[in-house]
Nucleic acid binder design. Structure first.
Lengths: 353, 353
DNA sequence: ACAAATATGCTCAATATGAGTATATTTGTG
DNA sequence: CACAAATATACTCATATTGAGCATATTTGT
């Protein structure tokens, strides 16, 4: 039996979701971990006899004796690991569920981690860590609608989820699940809400469709001494279409982060922390589109940001390759004190290019 | 010298901000603590030789060995203490700054607390605790604009803050502070953004204008062995107009919560968790107004919620005292799956009755 | 000179919003 | 009972915002 942990203490860690947009791709910083060798003991647990994904979010322990605040601890550690200076930083969420790491059953200090989102401009990457940039949508292929509605949504996700929900025995639970499905993925005519990234991820997990769900089922079985659950090979095939699996609950954390950033875009001018100090309106639009996973109407986008006073022309023009050269703009900081709601709104549901 | 805390462990606590609206007053649950006797050892520290406010937010330790998730731990403990069943629950923020409790300087386990907001319908109050309801605006008199712009804003807050900011020596800091002031409190023509409760609180704290700031200055002086800082008696007078002081950083936590609820109102239908299952449109409007601290235009509010499909008529009417009886409505849950953004929008800046 | 590519400007209908006015249905009072 | 006071509900109207598209401008490359 594991050690009792009656003193209620816990280990606090920091998880950083560091976001940048380059080449119209939203990227996050991940760490490719050598298989079966987690960075910190706290992340390891005992039973290591199952395959886990080597892809993790950057994680660092928080040492209360060294840092006055969580945010300071984060800055320090990210700088050491990546050499990045962080721009906009926001606390995301505190994750402490026991099933975060299925190996950590009762007993043992609980790993509590506080997630932070940081938006950064550049991508130099230096420092002690082995961090690298990876396309967000590698983890959430169904979230990128810029080239139209992703095939995986209609061909795999919706039908399989609907089938799963229909077969839930208990009536109340079935109905509430079906309602959640229609909210998260839209039904027929209804719309796809780009913010609901976490809700979609959670449904896919509950339905056992993605890698983490299959992995966790195995682990739980191993821990309780049951025989390996038979996972239909079809399920394993399906999971391959549903993005890269991450370690522990890291993909859930990432889903939370993407949802948060998308929501924030609409009512606070956070995009500008991802851009250089001057930029063309196309640059700006492409970054918004990349994060939102949508195409926007160009002329209306321009109207929104220019007439809305979010940006102002610098008088200079971009040196470019084809077409009429675009004017360079800069962020108008004054807007912060003028308009309560000032974001570069993603559309409610419209997506036309 | 205090004990070193090199193992990075920390004590995790839960802070609950439990909100209900009754008689057009938004209320939160607080605990009146006997002076100088905090509920948990973790909250006490050593140096107790200064006056602190007896008003605290409900706080409970989180025991990882007993509860699978933070939220479950919260539910359990709130039920024991108050007998309340929680409706909507949302994680607010994780607070871990060292200066949360100025007594806890270097060393000693850090108290990290995870704040949760819960919206509840009823106010019976039973159970083991000595919790009671208190008007939110007792703590933030400047946030309630329902009877027009509060006098304290123009007579005390704005002039004193402006004076304070003007006297900041360092140029960059002065300018950025002045910008923050104008964002948070509006300047002249500019608007008051009802969401920015935390930003306003923080500026008042930094300017040393509210009770907590005065208290913390004393404590810091006592700890570093300096003589009691001389606080102008005028400052103490001022603080009296700026709401009830709370223990530790609890008022900061509360400010975060109120800002969050106000923001949420606009784009998610959370109000309905504060209302009985059927209600008149006036009931609904009064609750929104109470939380938002604004008056809304009645006819337009009706149009918004009825035409927007947020509510549907039940066919029954209210039994009432004066005037034409109002129809009873209920929340239309379907709206969740229909419209991505469905809240009962507070106005951007308009406030007319 | 002209096609291709891009930027920028403008129009127009559909909705949404702010601010009223008008009407309806109650209770309480003389 | 008539009528004032109080409240609910319906409608109007000007203005602002949004979605969608067409038209024009300024480049580069052939």
């Amino acid at each position: 039996m594991p050690i009792k942990n009656a003193d209620q203490s816990a280990v606090i860690g920091l998880n950083a979701i560091i976001v940048a947009v380059t080449d119209e791709v939203p990227r996050i910083l991940i760490v490719q971990r050598a298989a079966h060798s987690l960075a910190t003991p706290a992340q390891r647990g005992e039973a290591d006899s199952y395959e886990d994904s080597p892809v993790t979010l950057p994680f660092g322990p928080f040492d209360p004796s060294q840092h006055r605040t969580l945010e300071l601890g984060l800055h320090k550690w990210v700088e050491q690991q990546t050499g990045l200076g962080l721009g906009y930083v926001e606390q995301l969420y505190t994750f402490a569920d026991r099933h975060r790491d299925p190996r950590e059953q009762a007993g043992g200090p609980r790993l509590v981690s506080v997630g932070y989102i940081a938006l950064v401009r550049q991508v130099p990457l230096s420092g002690a860590g082995e961090a690298e940039w990876q396309n967000c949508y590698d983890f959430f292929p169904w979230e990128d609608w810029r080239e139209g509605r992703p095939k995986v949504v209609d061909e795999i996700i919706r039908p399989k989820l609907q089938l799963w929900a229909k077969n839930i025995d208990e009536k109340n639970e079935r109905e509430s699940t079906q309602e959640r499905l229609s909210i998260a993925f839209g039904t027929g005519t209804a719309s796809w809400d780009f913010d609901r990234v976490l809700e979609r991820y959670e449904l896919l997990y509950e339905a056992g469709m993605i890698g983490e769900a299959i992995r966790d089922a195995k682990i739980r079985a191993a821990i309780s001494g049951l025989s390996e659950p038979q996972v239909a090979s079809e399920a394993i095939e399906t999971a391959k279409f549903l993005g890269t699996t991450m370690a522990l609950d890291n993909r859930r954390v990432l889903a939370t982060a993407i949802g948060r950033v998308r929501g924030k875009l609409k009512y606070r001018p956070v995009v500008f922390d991802l851009l250089p100090s001057t930029f063309t309106l196309l640059n700006l639009q492409l970054v918004v589109e990349a994060l939102g996973g949508v195409r926007l109407h160009k002329q209306n986008f321009r109207r929104l940001v220019v007439n809305g006073g979010l940006v102002e022309p610098t008088g200079q023009r971009d040196i470019q390759s084809r077409g009429r050269p675009a004017e360079l703009f800069r962020f108008r900081r004054e807007v912060l004190s003028e308009r309560p709601v000032s974001g570069v709104g993603l559309p409610s549901l419209r997506t036309i290019g």
